[in-house]
Design a protein around this nucleic acid. Structure first.
Lengths: 250, 250
DNA sequence: CCGACTTTGTGCATGCGTTCACAAGCGGTA
DNA sequence: TACCGCTTGTGAACGCATGCACAAAGTCGG
């Protein structure tokens, strides 16, 4: 696989551990799926399942079996032909690849509705993502504990982030504040950002941003609703008519 | 995802209005970007900007200019060569393609932390996605208004969804309840679902599901943190050494 | 009215991701 | 031990999306 921009191809001198080599080559889409596999596998492990075939696992994860095997091949071959995969082995290996063997301290900025929900969300700490810092500008919130963590003022973001070794910053502020908050997080050394604000963030190359945009999700669904409605209409009404019954010509 | 599969290729009989024809062909990835363009354009319109070039717009949206033009070409050509695009025209056309000319009634199921946040989230109604129904199982919540809407019991989901013509269902329940809630939404005629529960939902082909999975997002970020740490380590330590300083040979 | 400049729209090549299909490998069984 | 059936791992083909580069098309100044 032609890995990205080899930076002078330091790869030419190999001898790095196989995992590291592989991690670099894992497609982004596959990483997202690995996280899903991990959850499914964890669930299976909790139920006492010890082995699983690619067919079973792929169905539970809602993907093609071949794709699943290819995804797993990116992280190395840990299955047994004729048998399947050992659940425990796979879980721990995916955890290792995803960097889940250590905790990633999370800071949430913007303690509004969403920020509250995130701070109280139980799913994070249990999975190795303890929320260790909360920030807001509202003076009434400073010092108030939310989900067990007292809210700090956003001006203290650098000091607090460094002190608590925050590795992931979550932006849950109103849109106008997002870029400024992002800049502050970056200058505090945070290299990974999860952005809930409907804003396109500008960041340096060495910072990874993922965005969760509810409005966009809704609009994508809306598009599909509209497409369906159109198809239904064009079948029942016939062709040559627009939504309003107006004839449309190119 | 696999919403393609032309169902016997009704496309074979053409003569449909150009837009309908196009809508079917727009790549999923492009639809997501159109929603982003729309937001950027709306912001520009609010600031009194009337015309914009593909270069400007693409920068504001954080994408390649050529890609932007291609995306816009999927919905038809509405630019003027040598000048650019009329902001108003583009806004209204994207809105039309995305089906935003009519409101899409939204139901939120699961009024926990996240459900509260969603019900109170101001971004939805303003953009044509009024939240018209809330559901939960908790008896203490039934009838309590959240964000102005009283919570209904989940057993009434079918009647309420039909009555209020819910077109999008949002699942914000704990994981174990998600599939059951999903099934009920589907049988109430809801064809689009936005799923916040970390569960792979099984739905009929005619239902569109989009999922927002915070844990997966965090784990993707974690992967990048780990990859960075590894790269940094292998650069500073040199080659042939693993993270623990052990020499590893293939 | 014409020519130069600007910007769109798109054909084409490239690369990535998905899917297929099958050989290789392993456990079970006689 | 040798065979049989099952499942993995992967080479290869396909399809989609991205990015480039340029012709077409329009505006603006003279």
């Amino acid at each position: 696989m032609a890995s990205q921009r080899g930076e002078g191809e330091t790869t030419a001198t190999p001898l790095e551990p196989a995992d590291r080599e592989r991690a670099r080559a894992i497609p982004e889409a596959a990483v997202a799926r690995l996280a899903v596999y991990l959850r499914v596998l964890s669930g299976m492990a909790d139920q006492g399942v010890t082995a699983v075939s690619s067919e079973e696992l792929s169905q539970a994860a809602g993907v093609n079996a071949a794709k699943l095997r290819k995804d797993l091949s990116y992280i190395g071959s840990y299955g047994t032909r004729g048998v399947g995969y050992d659940v425990e082995v796979l879980v721990s290996h995916i955890e290792r690849i995803l960097g889940l063997t250590r905790n990633h301290s999370v800071a949430v900025v913007g303690i509004g509705n969403l920020g509250h929900a995130l701070a109280n969300y139980g799913g994070f700490p249990g999975r190795g993502f303890p929320v260790t810092a909360l920030f807001d500008v509202d003076a009434d919130l400073i010092g108030v504990p939310v989900g067990g963590i007292p809210v700090s003022h956003i001006d203290d973001i650098t000091a607090v982030c460094l002190e608590r070794e925050v590795s992931i910053g979550v932006i849950a502020t109103p849109p106008p504040a997002a870029q400024s908050v992002c800049d502050r997080l970056v200058s505090a050394g945070v290299q990974c950002i999860l952005n809930f604000a409907p804003v396109v963030l500008q960041v340096p190359d060495n910072v990874e941003v993922r965005k969760v945009d509810l409005a966009v999700e809704m609009q994508i669904l809306s598009f599909h609703v509209a497409r369906r409605a159109d198809e239904a209409a064009s079948v029942s009404v016939g062709n040559g008519l627009g939504v309003d019954g107006m004839v449309i010509r190119p």
